[in-house]
């Protein structure tokens, strides 16, 4: 018999890992909803964001909070330019072109990061590294806790932004009906680039939050595969769905690692995905109103 503390421990660890998956999935979903493109370089943008934060904090000796904020801004600007300079050109091309382009960009980012920062794992000191918090007998790593709290805060900020601000509502409008948004005088192209900027910023934040748990290295972006599963589980189009899908994958993965023989942990995301596709192919939170043609 396991004790309850053990199980809670696994849940918290899983939820923390799941939040990271969820944040990357959120980036997938934001871009997909707006432009119907799937950005397979999302995980690699997280990696770049992590390295930028590493440079600012560890190399230039910035304060953690200042450096993290600056890294998010830099990565967001990078996302904006990526859309404005590269991806805008493939709008209207077949989906396959977009898939190949973003996969290719991922390769370029990894190579570029390897050349710039090297292929060794790096890390920087955060206020959460190697600390624990005692919550009524339950010992939780401060790093894991910071991931969960950070994700929740980001969700609140994004929710307010998308529902209460003019720009956020315009982003929703442009995602729902591009042509009508043009007729309203909404600068749709700039809005789409801004959505890329938000996705990249969120990815960077995921990289920073993840850095105390696992180090930053060139291949950390490969966890985006699990995020992709999380996004599909959530319904690929739903923002809360992507986060809950991510947390689900994270928790199941933790339990699989604890209970099942070695190796199973790595495949659980895909097993959950397959089960979801069999039981509820539209995902957890599919928006079922469809587009009017």
């Amino acid at each position: 018999m396991e004790d309850a503390a053990r199980i809670l421990q696994l849940v918290v660890n899983g939820a923390a890992a799941g939040c990271i998956y969820g944040l990357i999935a959120l980036g997938f979903v934001l871009i997909y909803k707006a432009t119907e493109m799937v950005n397979f370089a999302q995980g690699d943008i997280m990696m770049l964001g992590g390295f930028v934060a590493f440079s600012l904090i560890a190399k230039f000796g910035m304060n953690y909070w200042v450096g993290a904020l600056l890294a998010i801004v830099i990565t967001a600007a990078f996302g904006y330019l990526l859309d404005a300079v590269v991806l805008r050109r493939v709008i209207g091309q077949p989906q396959f072109a977009v898939v190949m382009l973003t996969l290719g960009l991922g390769f370029i980012f990894r190579a570029g990061a390897g050349i710039t920062w090297g292929y060794d794992s790096v890390g920087f000191n955060t206020p959460f590294t190697n600390k624990t918090v005692n919550m009524g007998g339950l010992i939780v790593g401060a790093d894991n806790l910071s991931i969960i709290v950070g994700t929740l805060l980001l969700c609140v900020v994004l929710f307010i932004f998308f529902n209460k601000t003019r720009l956020g509502v315009a982003m929703q409008a442009a995602s729902q009906n591009q042509l009508a948004a043009y007729y309203m005088g909404i600068p749709v192209r700039r809005i789409f680039s801004l959505i890329w900027a938000i996705s990249a910023g969120v990815a960077c934040m995921a990289g920073i939050l993840l850095s105390p748990v696992s180090m930053i290295d060139v291949n950390m972006g490969s966890l985006a595969i699990k995020s992709f599963a999380a996004a599909v589980i959530g319904g690929f189009g739903s923002i809360p769905g992507s986060l809950i899908g991510g947390i689900l994958v994270g928790i199941v993965e933790q339990f699989a690692g604890y209970k099942l023989p070695a190796g199973f942990q790595e495949v659980t995301a895909n097993v959950v995905l397959l089960l979801m596709l069999i039981v509820r192919p539209q995902g957890l939170f599919a928006e079922r109103m469809g587009k009017r043609v």
Binding site: R166, V169, A170, Q172, A173, Q176, N177, L179, A180, A181, Y183, M184, G185, I186, E287, M289, K291, R292, V293
Partner: peptide
């Protein structure tokens, strides 16, 4: 321009749709 087939923003509220008309 009021396009053919209305082209509203289906997931926004009526009020938000109207506010989008005044976006500029």
């Amino acid at each position: 321009h009021v396009p053919e087939g209305r082209e509203t923003f289906p997931f926004l509220t009526v009020r938000e749709n109207l506010m989008m008309g005044a976006y500029t």
